[in-house]
Design a protein around this nucleic acid. Sequence first.
DNA 1: CAGGCATGCCTG
DNA 2: CAGGCATGCCTG
Lengths: 412, 412
Amino acid sequence: MDGQQPYYNQTNWHPNGQDNDEMPYLLTNSQTQRIIENLVESPPPFIEDPVLTVDTGNFMGHGTNTYNEFPSHQLPEQAYHPNNDYVIHEEQSHIPVNTNSSFMSVSQIPAMELWPGHLNFTVEFSNTQDRTKATPWIFSTKLKKLFVCMDKACPISFRMDNLPQEYTKYWIRGQMVFSKADHFHDHVERCPGHMGMGSSLSYETHVLRCEDKTSSYVDHSDKRHSVVVPLKPPAPGTQSVSLCYKFMCRSSCPGGLNRRPTKLVFTLETLDQVVGRYSCDVRICSCPGRDIRAEEGKAEKNHSTEQTSKESEAPELIPIVLPPIGLQKGKMKKRKATPAAPPIPPPTEPSEDQEDDEGIYNLNINIPGRRNYLFIKDFVTRFLNDYGSLPVDSNKHSHHNDTLKRFKKEQP
Amino acid sequence: MDGQQPYYNQTNWHPNGQDNDEMPYLLTNSQTQRIIENLVESPPPFIEDPVLTVDTGNFMGHGTNTYNEFPSHQLPEQAYHPNNDYVIHEEQSHIPVNTNSSFMSVSQIPAMELWPGHLNFTVEFSNTQDRTKATPWIFSTKLKKLFVCMDKACPISFRMDNLPQEYTKYWIRGQMVFSKADHFHDHVERCPGHMGMGSSLSYETHVLRCEDKTSSYVDHSDKRHSVVVPLKPPAPGTQSVSLCYKFMCRSSCPGGLNRRPTKLVFTLETLDQVVGRYSCDVRICSCPGRDIRAEEGKAEKNHSTEQTSKESEAPELIPIVLPPIGLQKGKMKKRKATPAAPPIPPPTEPSEDQEDDEGIYNLNINIPGRRNYLFIKDFVTRFLNDYGSLPVDSNKHSHHNDTLKRFKKEQP
DNA sequence: CAGGCATGCCTG
DNA sequence: CAGGCATGCCTG
Ligand SMILES: [Zn+2]
Ligand SMILES: [Zn+2]
């Protein structure tokens, strides 16, 4: 894994604490306990969003109503700042990333868990795409990840087992979210290069577009961007609705997504609540065919060394945002390469220390009791699996092992 | 040379005629003759710019005076549109390149030839830079090319053998120009990502900056961007003045330079004329050390197969812009790979047909008479050497052979 | 800072 | 469209 180029270090986020004094965080026992308590307060499986403040009035963007985003699990305020140590670099050679700083402190993190709900809301991508290098889009079931060219129509099917009578009271919201905790709070918007190309559409800043004429764009200044399409009756004899979406920036766009991995989140919503949710990873690139092959190939390689992480992708797991809890003086030691590391023991093996991919946190947890230890361990594993610093090529099936591998160190 | 990725096809310029019907140009005999006539009208060696309309009033940018750029050799109007077949792609996935279209039809091409003039104006880069991969800047004497990081100060010495008494009446203008004919008419400006980062400097759009406090920026809406610094008395005992310059975009910046090679042009000017000129290639990149090694290495390889093109870099050669002169119906055939081509015969070898690097032109010249043939051939060679489709890695010493290699085809 | 990946895009 | 370069930037 040495020498590879992960995602988004070229942002205004402070990459690894080398330019100033902020240091890796340490969890104290009581802080760890707080996290556990929060976790216990919202246990799996499906958690109905505790605060359903979703749009009770107007879902058509650009209105004046206040509009609340997807509610999030109510983690402590801190939880919304997983990376408080960011620093705005003034180095002008870096195109600044859309950090939406004005909103950062109030924005909530949209929920991303898969949740079909009572209408059994599911999303499907056609499997028939060829895997040529530059196929316009292709979906990896294995990775649960969409690979798509910028600005190419990508048909997506939405299925509901028990389609409600009143279609008009339902709509589908599409939204993109950065999938790593450090960037949850950044809104996904187009890069400066692709914006302001003059077309002055009202939704010019939106990465995700729906080709459907009835779609409308939500982007009140303090809100995440999303596209909303009123539900239509499905084609006769079917229970699904198909819509074409487009992505108007690449994952690599400098100053925009900036190589930061993203998720695509669809929610089925009605006037007063979210009734179903789907999410998957998206990569918007120039060669979906090449890249899916590469990522699946790497995933397979990782996969062959582990078998036990299946649970970590169960839909009933809730997303957790780990708050930063302390500062430690001293530079973080660089991760040593573990070249050609042999099969890593499953997560039940204790005494792994863990260091995140970007080198910001140094989690050094002292846990009293083996049960506690195992619980925390599972928590951390799941957290990292959902939001951790996983390499672009990782997939749900291989995350676990990979995660452990990446965190090997420093535990006595 | 197959598979390599040259410069700037991802522009709004139409790359190779595949999306619409414009076709490669053919020179007719009479058209060829016109070129020759033009060439003869402005014979080498040093040509004082025939129309010296340079700033007779105010060199401080942002004034209201009309300000004429560097004069150019007076080629036919057409000559200023070497690539009339451009098409603005509306495909939004391509960040539009600054084509300065409003100005394109009136802009003149700045002269770029080396011309010390009677004051023996020369420019020097320190040789002491280390060649580490990311050295902030380094100059290749061999390639006559500056490799420099974005936004790093690069000290440049200007030397005049007979420094005039009245410094205040002289100034040094720095300017960047695209070095390939297809892009002469584009002004070199910053990319959208690097512009509008809020600093709202009046010279925010300028790629080339001079750190000297007395510098001023010229960018009247219809003019090329340049930095002007009043000449100062040289340090006692010396005859040179040192100034620090910075480059605020990379050569690779999407929507900006966009991988198009550029030249850096300095002119010593006085109130009513240009009295000296220097130019070299510039590459603004992230790893000057790596890239200089790569380019010199490749140059050396090419160099080893030819010896006769030395003349083509003599300073007394004037730059020539070849106008597009006709359309031919039918798709251009793709160049066949000439893998591991053995040493190419020197340019005196006749019967080479030539096809340009970007596949736009098909020069198919029928020339009556061997002398004419040789003359044209030399002309073409020199032209290509100065402005032709040479690969990034080519250098003055290796252009010739490389050029011929790249044009091998289609001649019966 | 050197090695080397990531990823757009050029070539045939 | 596949091969493969070019080039920013991540890693140790
Ligand atoms: Zn973009
Ligand atoms: Zn730029």
